[in-house]
Structure formats: C-alpha cells, structure tokens
Design a binder for these strands. Sequence first.
DNA 1: TCTTGACTCTCCCCTCGGGGCAGGGCTTAT
DNA 2: ATAAGCCCTGCCCCGAGGGGAGAGTCAAGA
Lengths: 271, 271
Amino acid sequence: MYQIGEFSKICQVSVKTLRYYDKVGLLRPSEVDRFTGYRYYDRAQLEKMLLIQKLKRYGFSLDEIQPLLSCDNDAFYQELCRQREKLQWRLMELETVFQELTLHLRKLERTGDIMDIPNGYEIQLTETRPMAVFSCRERMGVDEFGKYFGTLYERVAKEGLTPGGVVGAMYHGEEFNHDSSDIELFVSVEESDRAEKVMEARQCAMTVHRGGYSTLNEAYAALVSWIEENGYEWDGAPFDIYKQGAWHNRKPEDWETEVYFPVRKRESAAS
Amino acid sequence: MYQIGEFSKICQVSVKTLRYYDKVGLLRPSEVDRFTGYRYYDRAQLEKMLLIQKLKRYGFSLDEIQPLLSCDNDAFYQELCRQREKLQWRLMELETVFQELTLHLRKLERTGDIMDIPNGYEIQLTETRPMAVFSCRERMGVDEFGKYFGTLYERVAKEGLTPGGVVGAMYHGEEFNHDSSDIELFVSVEESDRAEKVMEARQCAMTVHRGGYSTLNEAYAALVSWIEENGYEWDGAPFDIYKQGAWHNRKPEDWETEVYFPVRKRESAAS
DNA sequence: TCTTGACTCTCCCCTCGGGGCAGGGCTTAT
DNA sequence: ATAAGCCCTGCCCCGAGGGGAGAGTCAAGA
C-alpha cells in the first residue's frame, strides 16, 4: 500500500493527476480511509496506471481510455488499430504543415516577403453553364465531406446514372463555421433529364487554387479583392469545384480547386 | 466594408473567432459603430487575417502571433525558423509514438497480451560504489535536463576536470511532477579529491531500461514490485544513469538507462 | 408604416487535463 | 508542545473559442 505521494513518484504522475483520475473515475485508489480521506494505492493500480499512461501517449483522451480498460481483447485491438490510423493521419498533416513552413521560409529568404501569399491567382470572369446535378444540402463540418460524398455517389449509382466528373461544394448562409456550416455538395450527372436539380447559369469570378484546402481562404481573399476593385458585387453563394482532389492524387500540393464567386456589375459608383 | 458575417465567410473563420480576436486585441475591426457596436472589416483586415491563419497552422499560439504581426522581417524570419525546429521535434515525437503503437499492435497479435509491458526487466541487487561528482539540485521540469546538464558540464570544464562518463539524475522529494520536481543532476569526475561531493555507496535494486524515456515508469513499476516481493524496503531517492542517451545516439529505441532504487532488507515480516 | 426575418450585440457558462493556492486535518519526531 | 511533512477538499485558472439567452439593428416586403 502506497500513499499518494509515493505512488505519484513510482508512476511518474503528479498527485493532482491522481486525484483527478479518482474524481473522474478513471483510476480509483484500492482503499480510501473513511475518516481522513487518505488515498491508498497498491500494485493492481500500478499496472492499470501504466496502461493508462501508454494509451494517453497513443493520443486517446481520458474519456476514450475509460471503456478501453474493461473491454475484451478484440475490441481493444480494434480501437488500437483505429488510433493508429488517426495517428498516421495526424503525422501526414504535420508533415504537410512542416513542408509549407519550409517553403514559406525559402520564399522569405528570396523575396523578403512576409506574407507568402501566392499572388499568382489569375482571376477570370466566366459564365457558368447550367449543370444537371445530384446534391445534398446539410449542416456539416468541412471534415465530413468524404462521408457525405460517399452517400451522394451511392444515390447516383442507385438511380443508374453516370457521374459527369464535376464535383463541388456550395457554401450557403452567411456565416462560416469550420465544424458546422450550411453546405451543399453536388455531383454532376450525364443524364440531364433525370437529374435531381439543375444549377443555373451564373456570372462568376473564378480562380484556380493549387494546394491543400487549408489555404483556400487565400483564394477567397484574392477573389473578394478582385471583385471590389473591378466594380462588381458579390451576389450569391460561392462554390468550389474539385478538379484534382484527394481521390485523384495523394499529395495535397498537387490538388487543384476552382473557386467561384457569383457576381454582378455594381450599379452605383459609390461604395 | 464587410459585416462580421460576410467577413467570416470570406476568411473561412467563425464569427465567434472574429469577436474573440477583437477582444484579445489580435485583430480589431477597421471600424466599430459607436451606437450599435456593429463591427466592420475591410481589406486590410483580410490580409492580416490570412497571415494569422497561416501562423496558427504553423503551430504558433495567439499570444505568440500578436508580436509577430508587427515585428521586422529579420525577427519574423528568426521566429519562423525556431518554429520550424519545434515542428520537426514534434514530428519526430509523433513518429516515435506511432512506432510504439505499431509494435504494441504486433505484439498484441502474437501474444494477445493487452498490456505490452516488457516483462524482460532483469532486476539485480547491487552495491553502488562511492562516486565523485559535480551536481546541481534544482526544482526543474524533465524537459529541462538538457539545459541544466549544459551548465553543469561548463562548470566541470571551468574547473579543469575530466568528466568520468557517468551521467545521471536523482529524484528527491516524494511527489513527482512532470514540470517541476526536486531533481539533482550529476556528472562524475575523474579527480575524486576535487569533486564537489561524493555520492555514498548504497545497496540498490537496479535494472536497465531500453528505449525512450516516456516508458521509464514501467521500469520503476517493475523495480517497485520486485522490491516488495523480495522482502526489501524502499530507502532513499531513486536515480537514473544514462548509459546511452540522446547525445550518443539519435534513435530513442537504442537508448539505455540504468534505474536504481536504494533499498534495505525489511525488518518485520509483516507489511 | 409596420412587420418580419436575418443579422448583430453583450454576457455567462462550458470544454480538457489538470495546476496553484488557501485553509485545514493527520501523524510523527523532536 | 510544536514543528515538519504529509494529506484532504474546494475554489479559481489556463487556450481558443462554442453554445445559447436575451435584446438591439437593419433591410425588404406587405
């Protein structure tokens, strides 16, 4: 039986943490003195603690660890596999960011430009054509696109239609929120008569964004600036079309996205 | 001039975030209506926001970003370089954890053992020899070892003494705390007469831990169990000696650490 | 002109994994 | 008796916002 301080030292965990784990029910002492409230731990707790620490290093949250401690081997194995995939995902993301930062630095050395905004955005005014699509409009987070696109493709397949190769997302509503925005995903279909809806022709300012989606906001900014400078007015929900995306090519730096802002000529000269 | 909702959409940042940045002074709107409190943003804010987002992706905290926005190019460059190193460090750590998890899974497949505790710890009872050392006892975090060892080596060099090749840390006090424990670092020196102090001979339970320091607690646990099972009693501050460490070899899986627990034979048979 | 709906404001409480401190109780050695 | 080390509970704090209540504001339609 160890007092909390000794136990803290054995496991290399702070006393506060031990008390916290007791409070949330993750690791209860083997015995608590009824009168003094002193906590006493023994070797069973020690093993459990080692496992908890290990799982925490693997990136599980305390809430996730709790059920893991009392599930059978198979479930445990499944969860570990899932976590491994998550870690791999995070690893790739971190590598991408590292790559970005490295390029930014290199550019900073050459040009002395702090911003590293790719000013090479070529903005064109285009008239989109009407497009027959299947779509799905939901309140969703931007990380859930994959899931929703999956069901969308299933619906197209169930109707026996042919995907036309245009894939995109339209951002409805005014406000943006990373985890929950009003977003409409769409996939074009060849059979225009059997489509779910037809996206109308619009005059748009458009540009092509190359690279991962985390820097899409720069394309947005370039478009908005262009619109203002050229006497147009923002008129309707913007949308992206994914020309080269995650399903074509693994490397984010090779992705290509067309960004469209519907516009109309401004009437009054004054802002 | 954009309202907060429009601006949110342009930058792909939630309204809540914009209000928060205003509150903490990171990004103030270009104008605030004195009567209604409405916030209005324009293109200058837009550029600044893009930079903020970028720096956030690079892993800077908001507190770190604030000064970065108004410093000169050189300082900015320095900070970016520093951040790049930090990212690289995090990347390596994440890779190590990923590796650990992979090995754990493989072992789980083979043995069905959930814990993945290396039960191969061979515990020996040894008598340490007196050792002439230079030491430095401070309240420090375990991530600051490098810094303190640096100054310790400097002191040894300034005295014109020869480091004897033994490097270690002793954990004083009862409680462990990752960021602030009472720790004594020591380096042995050849010239025993001119040493700062001499560590006395002790009877110890010892084992060798192979791998990164994040799993050191498993060696601790093994030692504590052994001590209890073999009728000994824990008697004094434990210490580690780093045989193969970060300065010998880059890969954490090749590190070797000796872990010592001073012990004495228990007198009473009962616990 | 009034209403309605969309947009905005401030204010307060919540997150996760604990850290820090105040105020007090228990045990043991001096 | 007292002092030193332990330990307890309870309260507020962190970062980077999210959620919602309750109220004010703006523009367009009836």
